[in-house]
Computed example of a mutant assay.
Amino acid sequence: MLFSKIFAAGALMATTAIAALSPAQIADGLKRVTDLSQQLQAPAQSITIVNAPLIVIGQGPFPQIIRGLTEIVTTASVTIAQLDGTSPITAEADATLIFNAFRAFVRVHQALLNILIGKAGIITSVPVVGQPIAAVLRQVEGVVDTIAIGLINLVESRSQDLTSEANSLGNTLDLAIQKYEGLQLNI
C-alpha cells in the first residue's frame, strides 16, 4: 500500500455520484469506523491458545472479530460510495477536521492490528484461524486503501499528511496479513 504511487491513479477513478458528503459527514463516517475498530480491541485481547480453536465451532473471539472487521468493511464502503460525489475540501478547518478523524482511525486501528499481530505469535499451533483472519484483513485493506485515496484526492492541503498516515496503517495491515497468512495447516 504505497499511496504516493497510487495517488494519481485515484484521480482517474470513475465518479458515479450517489450522494456527496460534507466534511462533517466524512468525519462522522470515519468516527463510526473508528468506534467499530475500538470495540474489537477487547475481543482481540481475549485471544488465547485455549479459546482460539473454538473458531471451528463458531465460538471464541475470532468469529466476533471476523464479524466486526466485516462490519468495518461494510460501514466504510458506504462512506466510499458517497465520497465520489463530494467536492474538493478547500477550507482549512474542514481539511483539519477530516485529517484528525482519519488520524484517529489510523491510531485506533493500528492498536487493534498490533494486538492481532501479537496474538498471532501465541496461536501458531492453531493454524485454522490464519486464513479466515487474513482474508477479512485483506478486505479491510481494500477499503482503507480506497478511503485513503479518496481523502488524499479530496483534501489537497493535507494530502501529504493523509498519505503518511495511510502508509503507516498500510504497513501495519501488511504485517498483520502476513502473520495470519503464515498460520497454515501443515498437511
Rank of each mutant, 00 (worst) to 15 (best):
K5Q: 14
I123R: 09
K31H: 06
Q38W: 13
Q41G: 09
N100G: 03
D145W: 00
T163K: 11
V33Y: 05
S125H: 13
G10V: 04
K5L: 13
V126P: 08
V140F: 02
N51P: 08
D35Q: 04
E156I: 14
V56L: 15
E141T: 10
T163E: 11
L54S: 13
D174K: 11
A166F: 07
G142H: 11
T124N: 11
R32G: 07
Q41A: 15
V136H: 02
L69S: 01
V144F: 05
A120V: 04
A20Y: 02
I117A: 10
L116Y: 12
A93L: 12
A9M: 09
I152S: 11
S125E: 02
M13S: 14
Q41D: 12
A176R: 04
R158M: 08
K119Q: 06
T16R: 15
Y180H: 04
G150V: 09
I147T: 03
V73F: 10
N100H: 07
L183Q: 06
A95V: 02
F3L: 12
D28P: 01
G170D: 00
N100P: 07
I149T: 14
I66T: 11
L30C: 08
I66H: 13
I57Q: 13
L21H: 01
I122T: 13
R67A: 13
G170C: 02
Q139F: 00
T86I: 10
A81W: 05
K5H: 14
I49K: 13
I117Y: 10
I66W: 03
I55M: 12
A27L: 02
L113H: 02
V126D: 01
P61H: 05
L175R: 14
A176N: 01
